[in-house]
């Protein structure tokens, strides 16, 4: 027994310490959030916010549940593990919420209405969730349709100029000339060239997303190790098979880098399209709220937008991890 502990001196000590660490982290995180709740509930607001009480209750419930998770690690190890891992972040968030609460709502350090307290943002979600949801869906629809059309077109262009010299001869110069142009610079033309501002926006987003996909697909297809083609040809693979069984799978890692860049470009194009053209969507909502000086609505919408963008990238990386599971050392997200 002593031999074992000598070989693994940390093992037993660590597991005991982990139980205590879990409990302590849970309690610390819980106290930080309870502090945020007390800060909200104990003093009167300087302004007129409707959700202060509900906010305090909500934050307090979170704080209590962190404590419970930390203390019940013996029965729910996954919950405790989560609290331990997220602990430092939870503590920091609790303290930030407290400070924010005091600075914005209680002490008046932050000028209103530019920096609303958390309950001000919560109020937007509880009172305007229907409107927010409809704008969110409008943005999502615009982004999804534009991105899918653009990336499919970009992929087809990339494969064709990577594969066929004739296609390369005609399409490559056009791609080089128009591709680097910021899609948004075409705004003045696009909005009268298209029948509706919606189709114009789709075009802008598709153009922005298509370019990086086309370039990276093309370079992926063009740089496939020629030995792969030799092997496939001696095994009797026909030209069409060479495209689908060799060129495209070999280019896929590149294609996904292109898709990642395309998402970023599509977000920018989406915002511009919504700020200038379409009368719906998160971007439009942000601008409209700013016009009314409802900054709480701006923050609420920004948070939704961040979720949309981050969620899209996460989804893309999930798909990539599925498709490229054969690859080593993937880029992390």
């Amino acid at each position: 027994m002593s031999d074992v502990t000598a070989l693994h001196p940390g093992d037993t000590g660590l597991s005991v310490a982990t139980g205590r660490t879990e409990a302590l982290t849970g309690i610390a995180a819980g106290l930080a959030w309870l502090l945020a709740a007390v800060a909200a509930a104990a003093f009167d607001d300087l302004g007129d916010w409707l959700e202060t009480q509900n906010y305090a209750i909500g934050v307090g419930v979170f704080g209590l549940s962190f404590i419970v998770l930390g203390l019940t690690g013996r029965w729910f190890p996954r919950g405790a593990a989560w609290v331990t891992r997220a602990g430092p972040w939870l503590i920091a968030l609790g303290l930030v919420l407290t400070l924010w609460q005091l600075a914005a709502a209680k002490l008046g350090w932050l000028p209103q209405p530019f920096f609303p307290p958390p309950q001000g943002i919560l109020e937007v979600y509880t009172f305007e969730y229907e409107e927010l949801a409809s704008h969110f869906l409008a943005s999502f629809r615009l982004l999804a349709v534009g991105f899918v059309i653009g990336t499919i077109a970009g992929f087809l262009v990339g494969v064709s100029i990577g594969w066929s010299h004739k296609a390369g001869y005609w399409v490559h110069p056009v791609l080089r000339f128009i591709g680097p142009l910021p899609a948004t610079s075409l705004l003045p033309i696009v909005f009268f060239a298209f029948p509706s501002s919606w189709s114009a926006s789709i075009f802008l987003i598709a153009l922005a997303a298509g370019f990086p996909v086309a370039v990276l697909t093309w370079s992926g297809v063009a740089n496939v190790n020629t030995a792969y083609y030799d092997v496939a040809r001696t095994l009797g693979v026909k030209p069409l098979g060479l495209i689908f069984k060799v060129a495209i799978p070999a280019a896929l890692p590149n294609v996904f880098i292109g898709l990642f860049m395309a998402l970023g470009a599509a977000f920018s194009a989406l915002m511009v399209a919504e700020l200038v053209g379409v009368k719906a969507g998160i971007g439009f909502y942000i601008q409209w709220s700013q016009g009314w000086a409802s900054y709480a609505n701006v923050y609420a919408a920004l948070i939704l937008l961040a979720l949309l963008c981050s969620g899209s990238i996460t989804l893309l990386f999930r798909i990539r991890d599925r498709l490229l599971s054969w690859q080593k050392g993937l880029v992390k997200w």
Partner: peptide, 26 residues
């Protein structure tokens, strides 16, 4: 007439089974 090259040149996106199956597949 099939060639085995100095580099195995296996298709990295195919499993061993699918690499071997490429000929019959084609």
């Amino acid at each position: 007439r099939v060639v085995v090259f100095q580099d195995p040149t296996l298709f990295p996106w195919r499993t061993v089974w699918n690499n071997v199956a490429l000929g019959p597949e084609a």
